[in-house]
Computed example of a mutant assay.
Amino acid sequence: MASGEPVRLTVSMSSWEGLARLAFFAEQFGYAYADVQLTGDNKFALFIVPDPGPQARQRAARNWERYPDARDGVSLPPVVPDAIEILKARMVVDSGSQYSDKVRMGLAVFTLTAFAAAIGFSLRADAVALVVVGVVWAALMALLPVLLVHGRRYRTRHAARLQAAGFTPVTDRSGRLRYGPPGGQLPGHGNPFAGGS
């Protein structure tokens, strides 16, 4: 961040709260949350970009003056819970728009089937274990539609929170439905990652 360039952080599975806190602290020092995406290896890619706005520049200068040792990860500005909740809502909606329900279902079926096949292959000598693996696989397959509906409702609840806070629905360049901040556009709209996102 010290270079003033866009930053892509790859983070192992973390809570939404943890990712939102990372973005929040970046915003205190002149950056803006741009996007979050699930990577192929079950990690999150968090994208933050420099915020050229005068308020962001003033906030960053003020915070660098107040917290000169912020790089230690301890001497940081106080957390604002409402700001964390808004960032969390943006991340939930952004990650949820990365794939359609159909693609999500296909990925889940493939992953669960591959996992069950690997377990079945390793237990091939034990017929009872294979039956148990088959029953668990069938139960998980039956549960997938319920999980998809739950995920859709979860994202809808967070989208409503964003709309209540003044964010507006925007379709980004890749066709994803996202929410732009009040009175502005999506941060990093010029694609500072040049195809990396």
Rank of each mutant, 00 (worst) to 15 (best):
1 M>G: 12
3 S>R: 12
3 S>T: 10
5 E>K: 06
5 E>F: 06
7 V>S: 12
8 R>E: 15
11 V>L: 15
11 V>D: 10
12 S>L: 15
13 M>A: 15
14 S>A: 14
15 S>C: 02
15 S>H: 00
16 W>M: 11
18 G>E: 09
19 L>A: 05
20 A>W: 07
21 R>V: 13
22 L>Q: 14
22 L>T: 14
24 F>K: 09
25 F>A: 13
26 A>E: 10
26 A>H: 13
26 A>S: 14
27 E>M: 03
27 E>C: 05
28 Q>H: 01
31 Y>L: 03
31 Y>W: 05
33 Y>A: 12
34 A>H: 03
35 D>F: 02
35 D>K: 07
36 V>E: 08
37 Q>T: 13
38 L>C: 14
39 T>R: 10
40 G>W: 01
41 D>G: 02
42 N>F: 15
43 K>R: 15
44 F>V: 08
45 A>K: 09
45 A>N: 06
48 I>H: 03
50 P>K: 00
50 P>Y: 01
53 G>C: 07
53 G>T: 15
56 A>W: 04
57 R>D: 08
57 R>I: 07
57 R>N: 07
59 R>I: 07
62 R>Y: 03
63 N>F: 03
65 E>L: 14
66 R>H: 05
67 Y>H: 04
69 D>S: 07
70 A>M: 11
71 R>I: 14
74 V>G: 05
77 P>K: 02
79 V>K: 00
80 V>W: 05
82 D>T: 07
85 E>Q: 08
86 I>D: 13
88 K>G: 09
88 K>A: 12
92 V>I: 12
93 V>G: 05
97 S>H: 12
98 Q>M: 07
99 Y>G: 00
100 S>Y: 03
101 D>C: 05
102 K>L: 08
103 V>N: 00
104 R>Y: 02
105 M>P: 00
105 M>K: 09
107 L>H: 02
109 V>G: 06
109 V>F: 14
111 T>Q: 15
115 F>W: 14
116 A>I: 05
119 I>S: 08
122 S>I: 01
122 S>Q: 01
123 L>Q: 07
127 A>D: 09
128 V>L: 11
128 V>D: 08
129 A>S: 09
130 L>Y: 02
130 L>E: 13
130 L>P: 12
131 V>H: 10
131 V>T: 15
132 V>T: 10
132 V>G: 06
133 V>W: 08
134 G>H: 07
134 G>I: 09
135 V>D: 12
136 V>S: 06
140 L>H: 04
141 M>S: 04
141 M>I: 09
142 A>M: 12
145 P>G: 06
147 L>Y: 05
148 L>N: 01
151 G>S: 11
152 R>T: 14
156 T>V: 05
156 T>I: 05
156 T>C: 00
156 T>L: 10
156 T>H: 02
157 R>C: 00
159 A>V: 04
159 A>C: 01
160 A>T: 01
161 R>A: 12
162 L>Q: 00
164 A>M: 08
164 A>T: 10
165 A>Q: 09
168 T>W: 11
170 V>E: 13
170 V>M: 11
174 S>Y: 10
175 G>D: 11
178 R>L: 12
178 R>S: 02
179 Y>I: 06
182 P>W: 13
186 L>I: 03
187 P>Y: 03
188 G>R: 06
189 H>D: 15
192 P>R: 03
192 P>L: 04
193 F>D: 15
196 G>Q: 14
